[in-house]
Design a protein around this nucleic acid. Sequence first.
DNA 1: TAAATTTGCGTAATCACTTACGTAATTAAT
DNA 2: ATTAATTACGTAAGTGATTACGCAAATTTA
Lengths: 317, 317
Amino acid sequence: MDFYNKTGKMALGSRLRRLSEQMTEQAAAIYDLYQVDLQPKWFPVFYSLLEQEETGKSIMDIAREIGHTHPSVSQIVREMAAKGYVTERKGETDGRKNFVLLSPAGQALRQKMQVQLEDVTTAIEKAMNETHHDLWKAIGEWEFLLEQKSLLRRVQEEKKQRESNEVQIVDFLPEHSLAFKQLNEEWITTWFKMEEEDHHALDHPKEHILDKGGHIYMALYQGQPVGACGLIPMEDGNFELAKMAVAPSAKGKGIGFLLGQACIEKARSQGAQKLYLESNTKLKPAISLYHKLGFHKVAGPPSPYERCNIQMELRLD
Amino acid sequence: MDFYNKTGKMALGSRLRRLSEQMTEQAAAIYDLYQVDLQPKWFPVFYSLLEQEETGKSIMDIAREIGHTHPSVSQIVREMAAKGYVTERKGETDGRKNFVLLSPAGQALRQKMQVQLEDVTTAIEKAMNETHHDLWKAIGEWEFLLEQKSLLRRVQEEKKQRESNEVQIVDFLPEHSLAFKQLNEEWITTWFKMEEEDHHALDHPKEHILDKGGHIYMALYQGQPVGACGLIPMEDGNFELAKMAVAPSAKGKGIGFLLGQACIEKARSQGAQKLYLESNTKLKPAISLYHKLGFHKVAGPPSPYERCNIQMELRLD
DNA sequence: TAAATTTGCGTAATCACTTACGTAATTAAT
DNA sequence: ATTAATTACGTAAGTGATTACGCAAATTTA
């Protein structure tokens, strides 16, 4: 297929499907050649039953083993039973189960298939010797890769990384005032309600944060402010990380992490030894972000905010 | 999938199918992630249309390019047209054709997909870097292999070779008399009718062939006689290859070839310089077997057999 | 120039799976 | 000891491809 040389890797799925369909079609002809009355789709079930257990295997056992869904196995078993190759038996201790066993006729098929399986195996192995890249092993590796981390997850990570490269962390400017307020109001009102303290800091960031020796970083994505985070000086010379907010529409770009990193660096450069923060355990993603940044839970001084039920800190030395 | 480590290579088809199904499922989720309103199955068609030709592409053009059947393309195009991503136009010079073109809406999708395609490609390429065996290239190689020679053909060859190892070529014994006659009668009566000469040779092989210095080989498969072939001395000191017969049930085991080889060797050891035979062009497989054995067409002396319309010979020196 | 064959493509049926859903049996939680 | 959740499995419907078939247009052959 020349076509797939042009599309590139993203057509991997389509390409695989085409190849597998070709092979299944050939398989049917091969069963014919050996006059084995077995449909290719039965093969995994049949093979699973060869490993004979006295009591047979339940539908779910087989499904799990061969990696199909149970309705698929159920249907295949019904078809095989109609041909007399398997017998079904209700579970004695567990009445829901349906134990499937190869019948004598099924056992006879096994004999007949023996030669076929050998021929097919040699044919495929000979073909494989003509290739440089081992399809069999490659499939195995991909099954493993996808089990570890789905393709979706892999693409999500790629997206996140690309987008976070497009995120700029900049110092707060007067023109960010409105965005700073809105971003914070948004998350506070979705989870809690605005408190007295919030209004002070959000309406007058210059007076309440910057002029007191604090700092504010803004995150810009495609030029638009989509995140904010403040450093507020504490009495002991350290800083509190506060007013961290990211627009919901800009989630998944690693913006919180970038803002956090910027703040940590700033605090360190200001000679702080610790970074402190207050949050709420309801905010799971936030807490896990703080963990990722290196914060850990501490028992701190009482907070002026009602919504605070967890306090964390990060040692900078 | 542990299971497929037990089944061995013959489950290659089943295994491929499972992997491709997993990937297609993931693909759908990925389109969702980028909010691209495109079904994974549309991808090959869509991609083919990106390579824009002013006039569009006909259904068959697309089908051939992406390696699907035309009904599949036809249906996908219908679905895409319903969403407004493509426009259809009847052929002007050829009224049967249906030219498909990406609509402006389709063009817009292309823009939107650009980033997604890049992310997916990098994700897959990164995953591929974690593997030792290149799935992409392996698939390409297999597509090529199967195009050259189908899996069925490969298995057939394997079967033939294995079975021909189980074929024994033995000298004629009195106990083979009946088989010798029946094997020959069978093919003669299916194609022609028995002639005077046939009865002589088949009823009394000893007198008409062996005692005159000729020779007969029998082919045994699983102990049963399934083929025969005679060498009849000619006046010029050479031999005629005749009475070659193989049971229809034993076709495809290379028996004819083995019998032919045995006869050729015998003739050579008897000091013959040429081997001669008479046949009929209706018997295509036989003629091609003779060619494979090295015979070529000649104009020989008139034959006593009515059914003879081709004469061949093989030089032994 | 008429008849036969080939080609393009749409519709319907089929295939080998899947999800969705329902029922009954078993196990866990309150 | 109920109630709730889980598990086993069957049936029905859906999915993305395929073959089978039929019609009409175009091309080849007689």
